[in-house]
Amino acid sequence: MGRRRRLREVHLQHGVLPGRAGFRAARRPGPSAGEGGTPLSPNLAGRVAAAFALGAQARTSDVGELVTAFPHAYYPESSWEGDLELGATQLALAARELDDPRATGWARDAAKWAKTYIAGDDKSTLNLYDTSALAHADLAGLLRTGVPGAALGVRELAADLRRQLDTGAERAEKSPFRTAVDVTDFDAASKSFGFAATARLYQRVTGDPRYAAFGARQRDFTLGANAWGVSLVVGVGATFPQCPHHQAANLAGPSKVLYGAVVNGPNGADNFADLPFPAGAKECTRPDESFNGQGSRYADDPSSWPSNEPAIDFTSTALLAFSLAGTS
């Protein structure tokens, strides 16, 4: 009873009790590596060391098809220079915190891969397949402190962030909802949050707020300012997905287990042809699709995975955009 009482006191302190909204979100598990300065748990230490060792073995010429998922078409990633830029940047930042003499070398590596990415043809905007915006923003901070022999400077990084934002801004000008993403293609929510995050990153790097309104509109699109009037974040807004393509949510109700999860959103109408109803799923449908059109569709039922399946990458990009909005 003592442990239960202590748990209840903690829940009361934070305003979350079983049965109340946000209870499960507040109690999501997270790993702990111990107090600062204490030895790491050996399993975590081994895995982190293995990740660094694998990074040192990366192929950087004649790369060919990247390893993502099988079949490759499921997650067809082709951009990789930005990933190496991001990895080298984070190594340099960590090394500087620890006074590790390798920091400058890693920062130079990051600048080299940034220059390679910018000069290449395989460029996109912030989403599951392209992390260059994150890398550019952190690398810019490193370069400002001085990196002898760096292959580029802050100006080039800022210009590429502008390129990414201009890509969306030009498309948004032609959309009645000022939407930067193609609502007949996958990843509408994720890419919208990516634009919102990149607008904040650009302002952090340059101090220039010119894309602030654009970024806010892309965030608003995911929160219901769209043709369907539906928030793509479960539990947020007056209207949000009630019948997601998710086993546990189908059985228990989406707001109980998926609070904060992000679904794909509108997608190409052709992607919904002949979708089977998941075996064993509870019947659930929100039949009003009166706003579908122009080759795009959003459907709120368990079979409609092209528009209504939550995903970790969608949600993580949303968390990034929201956190940047809250701290900038």
Results as ranks from 00 to 15, higher is better:
257 V>I: 02
63 V>R: 15
269 A>P: 08
116 T>M: 13
10 V>A: 15
298 Y>E: 12
226 N>Q: 10
261 A>Y: 11
231 S>I: 01
149 G>S: 05
250 N>L: 09
58 A>T: 10
84 L>Q: 13
29 P>Q: 07
124 S>N: 09
150 A>D: 12
312 I>M: 11
223 L>M: 09
5 R>Q: 14
108 R>V: 01
32 S>F: 11
203 Q>T: 01
253 G>K: 08
207 G>T: 01
303 S>I: 05
255 S>F: 00
108 R>C: 07
216 A>V: 05
137 A>C: 07
267 N>W: 01
153 G>A: 05
60 T>N: 08
263 V>N: 05
214 F>A: 06
128 L>E: 09
78 S>W: 02
277 F>A: 15
243 C>H: 11
174 K>S: 09
19 G>H: 07
169 A>Q: 14
207 G>H: 15
325 A>D: 08
254 P>M: 02
235 G>I: 03
141 G>A: 03
295 G>H: 04
275 L>I: 01
177 F>R: 15
81 E>I: 00
77 E>G: 13
105 G>N: 01
184 T>M: 03
23 F>H: 15
259 Y>S: 05
191 K>P: 15
14 H>C: 06
76 P>V: 00
134 L>K: 04
293 G>Y: 04
154 V>Q: 13
189 A>R: 13
95 A>N: 10
251 L>Q: 09
118 I>F: 09
202 Y>Q: 00
158 A>H: 06
137 A>F: 04
139 L>H: 03
266 P>T: 00
109 D>N: 14
140 A>E: 07
257 V>L: 11
185 D>E: 12
307 S>V: 00
85 E>T: 04
56 A>Q: 10
3 R>D: 13
109 D>W: 03
256 K>Y: 07
18 P>V: 00
297 R>Q: 12
49 A>F: 05
83 D>I: 04
196 A>T: 00
175 S>P: 13
275 L>V: 03
16 V>R: 08
206 T>F: 10
295 G>T: 03
138 D>F: 03
270 D>W: 13
89 T>C: 10
73 A>F: 12
267 N>T: 01
234 V>W: 15
190 S>D: 09
90 Q>L: 14
74 Y>L: 13
73 A>R: 14
48 V>H: 12
199 A>W: 10
56 A>F: 04
179 T>E: 15
10 V>S: 15
328 S>F: 03
3 R>F: 12
278 P>G: 08
137 A>D: 07
145 T>D: 12
217 R>I: 05
66 L>G: 11
201 L>N: 05
105 G>A: 02
122 D>T: 02
103 A>N: 07
275 L>E: 07
165 L>W: 06
181 V>L: 07
303 S>R: 15
167 T>N: 12
167 T>V: 00
17 L>T: 00
15 G>M: 05
265 G>F: 01
102 R>Y: 02
241 P>T: 08
168 G>A: 06
41 S>W: 13
13 Q>P: 14
9 E>D: 12
226 N>K: 08
94 A>I: 05
29 P>Y: 10
291 F>E: 14
302 P>R: 01
120 G>W: 07
93 L>N: 05
253 G>D: 07
223 L>T: 01
71 P>W: 05
142 L>N: 11
156 E>C: 02
88 A>C: 12
46 G>H: 15
64 G>T: 00
184 T>I: 01
156 E>W: 03
62 D>V: 00
16 V>H: 12
254 P>I: 01
120 G>Q: 02
119 A>C: 08
229 G>Y: 03
154 V>A: 11
141 G>C: 03
125 T>C: 06
